[in-house]
Simulated scan of single mutants.
Amino acid sequence: MTGWRGVFPAITTQFKPDQSIDMAATAASIERQVKAGVNGVIMCGSLSEASTLDGEEKRAMVKLALDTVKGRVPVLAGTAEATTRNACKFAEDVAKIGGGGLMLLPGMIYKSDRRETLAHYRTVARATDLPIMVYNNPPAYGVDVTPEMFAELADEKTLVAIKESSDNVRRITDIVNLCGDRYILFCGVDDLILESLMLGAVGWVAGLVNAFPDETVQLYRLAQKGRYEEARALYRWFMPLLHLDVSVKLVQYIKLVQAEVGLGTETVRMPRMPLAGEERERVLGIIRAAVAKRPKLQALAAE
């Protein structure tokens, strides 16, 4: 089984003003994350605006990450295709490029039932030797991979990890009770991370890490070391920002945070548009209040 654990940023795709990909800025963002001590990076996820990237662009993003990290951390590719066939093809492409794994979503657009969802994951799992993180996010995508379904999928050797984003932290315990240590458990909801780590998750697919990499890594390390009083204090400071990860407009919100702290721009690709009016001022207020109280971090080595 792969040794995935720790903080895995879902990297935002940086765009130029004309909405073409800014390769240099995206590479710089990845490098900043690695220097902060993250344990892996994920390209082409929801936060990467993957639904607006064509196939060539997605492959280019994976290649860019591989060229940037140079083997220091694994690179996973979000795999969210409308058909199972295209998901298998993309998995093959990622393997050829040299990617370290996949973060696999259900088929997009059509909301599959239980039988169809299991068949989708089994088919892609058998089409590649790459390790796969199953991304379960029923609030966003309308398809739920339940703990019972994970137990049924346990015989698929390439399905090694779960990104649990059901917004129900009880799921961590339910999965462990049904599946034991069969899967590596990742939290995919920023504002449930401390609870998830205490219940058995060992990884965090993070969003606000794009703007606050040092604080994100510190929070994870404090929790892993059992220093919960310090972790709670940092979590409480971070929470208003972490709440921005669980909105339909998480991409615009997080990119605005990046712009405010000098780690990116708020340019998004249509049909998304940058925030405007009262909404933008409200989010800016949250960001600026947090920055004004930004804690000073002490050096904390990884285990």
Rank of each mutant, 00 (worst) to 15 (best):
V7K: 01
V7G: 01
T12E: 09
F15T: 10
K16L: 14
P17E: 15
Q19E: 13
S20H: 11
S20Y: 11
A25E: 03
A27T: 14
I30A: 10
Q33Y: 02
V34E: 01
K35P: 01
A36R: 03
A36C: 10
A36P: 04
G37Q: 04
I42E: 01
M43N: 08
L47V: 10
S48K: 14
S48D: 10
S48N: 15
E49Q: 15
E49G: 10
T52F: 13
T52D: 08
L53D: 03
D54V: 03
E56H: 15
K63S: 15
A65S: 09
L66A: 07
T68D: 04
T68Q: 12
K70Q: 09
A77E: 00
T79W: 05
E81N: 04
R85E: 01
R85P: 01
N86D: 14
A91H: 07
G98N: 06
G100P: 00
G101K: 00
M103I: 01
L105Y: 08
L105I: 02
L105V: 02
L105F: 12
P106M: 04
G107K: 00
M108R: 01
R115F: 07
A119K: 12
R122N: 05
T128M: 11
I132V: 10
I132E: 06
I132Q: 05
N136R: 04
P139I: 04
A140C: 14
M149I: 05
D155R: 12
K157Q: 08
T158F: 00
T158H: 07
V160A: 13
A161E: 07
K163G: 09
S165Q: 01
V169C: 05
I172A: 03
T173Q: 06
C179G: 03
Y183K: 13
C187I: 08
D191T: 11
L192H: 08
I193R: 05
L194S: 13
L194E: 06
L194N: 07
E195S: 15
E195P: 05
G200E: 07
A201W: 03
A201G: 07
V202P: 08
G203R: 00
W204A: 10
V205P: 00
N210C: 09
P213F: 11
P213Q: 14
Y220Q: 12
L222W: 00
Q224D: 07
K225F: 05
R232H: 05
R232C: 09
L234V: 15
Y235N: 13
Y235F: 11
W237N: 05
M239Y: 15
P240S: 14
P240C: 11
L241C: 08
D245I: 00
V246S: 08
K249S: 11
Q252R: 12
Y253V: 11
K255Y: 06
E260G: 05
V261H: 10
G262E: 14
T265D: 12
V268K: 02
P271E: 12
R272G: 09
M273C: 12
A276R: 13
R282V: 05
R282K: 06
L284Q: 08
R288L: 08
V291P: 03
Q298K: 11
Q298N: 14
L300E: 13
L300A: 09
L300D: 07
A301Y: 08
